[in-house]
Design a protein around this nucleic acid. Structure first.
Lengths: 379, 379
DNA sequence: CTGAAAGCGCTAACAC
DNA sequence: GTGTTAGCGCTTTCAG
């Protein structure tokens, strides 16, 4: 622990200062402060308020916390606040927390379970008892011990199967499978068959679900998916999300090289989509004339050129729901069972997608990939 | 204050539990914990460590803070973490703080002095004594009272003239004037004369400085600036930075309408630049063939199409410097005088700028605007 | 309706 | 080297 200059709460009045000035006791001040002023003598109240104002008194959360074990502070852990998606997420979490009188302290996990755990434990040592996890690693075991100690956790962006965990876990998420499905389906509906999927290999629930959605849509349309259409490049070690766009570019370049027949691309998220667009252009192809690109998340999709068709991630609704769920639990006004909130996404069509052109390349599709089959799941 | 379920630090051992198990006193544990174990008996140390491990003991920051007035937590206030620039800023602040053992709690000020003040006061009530202000309103008076109480404040993104304030204030910033200058100068060097400046009217120091840089470059090149080249649309009320791109678009549309002779555009930041690009295209002009665009900040500039020429904002260096400066002060290892750190930016040339085409429009420039003068500042 | 007293978990004198 | 004591600012029985 670092040295500090020992500066005390200089200039900060304490409850006893107020009591003295108001000619009453600390207890009474405390009662007043905690909403137990209902049947207090009016002039006592008046004196208290006057004293508080005069002294510019604010109660110390530390002292209060020491006594009650309670602090109006939430922890937020995301892969990286530098990622615009999580920045927006943080912004909404902040606002919802503020509305309930809570502050939020954040940490970037860098998708590292150990780092995430350390942060969470640090939060605990600060007295924080409510935690929002804004990512979705497959495993949550690193938080089990904390949960058993009493940390309330709500997971954002992944749907949790309650029975998967030994501890109660609320979850709030967009229906990621449906997101992947909608993105793919949109391309399919436009007439594309050879559709690539641009994603890093980081194992998260939301990513797995989105990919499942892609497969479901393809299957439903009777398109046999070529393995080369799905990127398998693992995301590099110190994964910070900062390089997501670069990764998307590399991945897409690879995809395009292996499979010239591709006319449509579904990107895991906006950052990957930006990288994908760059790669498509470097490959000498136009968007959407030659390759259509659809993104998921819709954080910056509308801002670029061309504006990207994207499945919109309802971040605000999710964040608000997560915060309220968490605080409700902290304040003990909840049923015991874990809650799972899932919100359906919608697609926003913009200018990065269009009908495929009849291209000589597509005609020369190698092997069976892209070939239409009898659609046995037709609906 | 909201009700809570009164859950105590259940399952959390205290220092006396450790003392008991280690068959020693709390003081000794405390000494051990605070790096005063130099000449402690080795077996005492061993028993302590064993006990700590066994109990999974972690000291309570709240109790420690109550005693010492110290808490390893920093407050960070930015206009909006949803803004990618500030998200990246927050990420670097986080990392620098973490390296020094500090957590960071953040708030979005929405460029509202009152909101900013409330946050800062709340931070204070949590025991936080170090604050980073990541915006640069012209006035800082709303923080004066807090500063006088002992809050350490470092301002990021604005250069502070120490004597402007009654309280000591460290500042860390890029040389914003130079940033504006470099951006404009780049366009000038390419041969542009009619150069617009895209910015909201929010009064901040960094914005004023950047605009000054624009003027300086224009003056130096002997170009008379037409008032219509500089947007004067005030940013709308509840300014959240979320709509910066939209604002940039509206502003640019206006600029282009008023002044068809413009062949170059300097944008206040990346978000404005994105909006500017959209407006240029809607106006039926190509980038950079017909209009060159240069941005400032370079947060997403490289990711879009075409990749934007931009003055690079050294956010990491600034954030790290700010955090270290702040913590040094908190830990009392600083000279008394306020520090001003200024870092020079550099421009990164990409594909959104090129030499202007000889256009009939430019030739028909109305009035004197855009006319070359004798360059009396030539160097 | 108000107050006195005890104690949350920790650290800092000051003994021993 | 290690322990004793007091107390940070607040809340909470429990009396009055």
């Amino acid at each position: 622990m670092p040295e500090h200059n020992g500066e005390r709460r200089r200039g900060t009045a304490s409850i006893s200062d107020v009591a003295r000035l108001a000619e009453t006791s600390a207890t009474t001040i405390s009662n007043y402060l905690n909403g137990r002023a209902h049947r207090m003598a009016v002039d006592t109240i008046a004196r208290i308020e006057e004293a508080i104002r005069h002294l510019n008194y604010r109660p110390s959360y530390a002292a209060r916390q020491l006594k009650t074990g309670y602090i109006p502070m939430l922890g937020l852990l995301v892969p990286s606040v530098a990622n615009p998606f999580h920045g927006v997420l943080a912004r909404h979490v902040e606002e919802a927390a503020l509305a309930r009188g809570y502050q939020v302290v954040f940490g970037s996990s860098l998708r590292d379970a150990l780092r995430e755990q350390r942060y969470a434990e640090d939060f605990w040592n600060f007295g924080i008892r409510g935690l929002i996890i804004g990512s979705s690693p497959l495993e949550l075991g690193h938080l089990a011990e904390l949960a058993s100690r009493g940390m309330r956790i709500v997971v954002l962006d992944r749907n949790v199967n309650a029975s998967d965990f030994a501890f109660p876990l609320d979850s709030v998420s967009m229906d990621n499978l449906r997101a992947g499905y909608l993105a793919t389906r949109h391309l399919l509906d436009l007439g594309h068959h050879s559709i690539g999927y641009v994603s890093g290999a980081t194992p998260t629930v939301s990513r797995r679900d989105r990919l499942d959605g892609y497969h479901q849509a393809m299957r439903e349309a009777g398109v046999l998916v070529d393995l080369n259409w799905i990127s398998t490049i693992p995301s590099s070690g110190g994964y910070d999300d900062t390089n997501a766009a670069d990764l998307g570019k590399v991945i897409t370049a690879e995809l395009l090289k292996k499979s010239v027949e591709l006319t449509g691309l579904v990107a895991l998220n906006d950052m990957y989509a930006l990288g994908a667009c760059a790669a498509v252009r470097e490959h000498g192809r136009e968007i959407p004339a030659e390759v259509s690109v659809v993104s998921i998340d819709d954080v910056v999709a509308s801002l670029v050129h061309p504006p990207l068709t994207a499945v919109h991630h309802p971040i605000e609704a999710l964040s608000t729901a997560a915060v309220n769920c968490l605080i409700d639990r902290l304040e003990g006004r909840h049923a015991v069972e874990a809650q799972q909130i899932v919100i359906a996404p919608e697609i926003v069509v913009r200018l990065s997608t269009s009908r495929p052109k009849i291209s000589s390349r597509a005609a020369s599709t190698p092997g069976v990939s892209g070939k239409l089959q009898v659609n046995q799941w037709e609906k």
